[in-house]
Simulated assay, not measured.
Amino acid sequence: MDATILALLLLDGLQNGVIYALLALSLVLVFAVTRVILVVIGELLMFAPLSLVWLLEGKVPGTLWLALALGLLWALLERGRGAFFPLLGALGLLLLLPLARGEALLAYPAAVLLVVYLGMATYRVFFQPMREAAVLTLLIMAVGLHVAYMGLGLVFFGPEQFRPEPLLRGEVTVGLSWQGVLVLLFALLAVLALYLFFRLSLYGKALLAAAQNRLGARVSGIRPEEAGMVAFGIASLLAALSGLLLAPLINAAYFMGFMLGLKGFVAAILGGLISYPVALVGALLVGFFESFTSFFASAYKEALVFLLLVPALFYQSLRARTVED
């Protein structure tokens, strides 16, 4: 291996690692606040660029009807004044998406808002009524939603792969495009924004409180349901923006989100599903490990990446046993 190949592998690993980091941070945030392992985050990531492609082609994506159906159920569950927000969001989507057809300036924000609304509606309809359920029950629900959303993705967008136009064209150097630089900058800004959000904003401090001590947060006047809604909204926003930036580099298809979400989950597990910094480091480790294994053993790279779960889970089991003793 010469220096050129090493540099290419490092750049590829860094580019993949920052995307896994954003997914891992989203998974850790959602799990810490709601105890939900958000398996469906990969589908949310892919729904954004696929909806964008449909809008740019002058068509209304099927994800709009899914979001509206869940929004209606959300409004029925809320009733009274609580139904105002989901109905207002649904009305906004109904007005915005037809206007965004064929208009790039409107299509990008429309795709992001659609996925954020869909993520929040998913929490309210499926997970909030189960907030007292065991983690295993919530995981079964999350896996079921993953299967359902992936099947709906096939119905909405078909089996083809799509590659939206990059926001920035050209290459900085061999192996790194300007779109890749944009992905790296977005990841850095997202991590910084999350840090400032948790440290300086009232909502961020409330989320941390709900994550660290749910009962204490409730006693202090923080509603876990509202904290869960904010957590799902942030996770959906990160997934949507990541998908829009990543799709010009890797293509977008209904089935591709699952593998990306799983690798983000591996990174989150390396952080114990509780530590944001360790999850970030774990995501970069997964990205570099995947890059180098694809060079030395490309046929086994997926299996080798998921093999990282074994020592991570073994360490977590030893740690849990030590705490119990």
Rank of each mutant, 00 (worst) to 15 (best):
V112K: 06
V112T: 10
L113T: 01
L113S: 08
L113D: 07
L113N: 01
V115L: 02
Y117N: 03
L118I: 06
G119M: 01
G119T: 12
G119H: 00
M120D: 02
M120K: 11
A121G: 13
A121Q: 12
T122V: 15
T122L: 15
T122M: 13
R124Y: 09
V125E: 05
F126Q: 05
F126E: 12
F127M: 02
F127R: 00
F127N: 03
Q128I: 04
P129N: 04
R131C: 06
R131H: 09
R131F: 03
R131E: 09
E132Q: 07
A133F: 00
A133L: 02
A134Q: 09
T137D: 02
T137M: 00
L138R: 02
I140V: 11
M141C: 06
A142D: 12
V143T: 03
G144K: 09
G144E: 11
L145F: 01
L145S: 07
V147Y: 03
A148V: 12
Y149M: 12
M150Y: 13
M150W: 13
G151Y: 02
G151V: 00
L152E: 02
L154A: 03
V155H: 01
F156R: 03
F156G: 09
F157T: 13
P159C: 04
E160Y: 07
E160Q: 05
E160P: 06
Q161N: 14
Q161S: 14
R163C: 10
P164N: 04
P164A: 09
E165I: 12
E165W: 15
P166Q: 08
P166H: 09
L168R: 08
L168E: 01
L168V: 09
R169P: 01
R169N: 05
E171D: 15
V172D: 13
T173E: 15
L176H: 14
L176M: 15
L176W: 05
S177N: 09
S177C: 10
S177W: 00
S177P: 04
W178G: 11
Q179V: 08
Q179E: 07
Q179L: 05
G180Q: 08
G180A: 10
G180C: 10
V181E: 07
V181R: 06
L182E: 03
L185E: 00
A187P: 07
L188K: 11
L188H: 13
L188T: 12
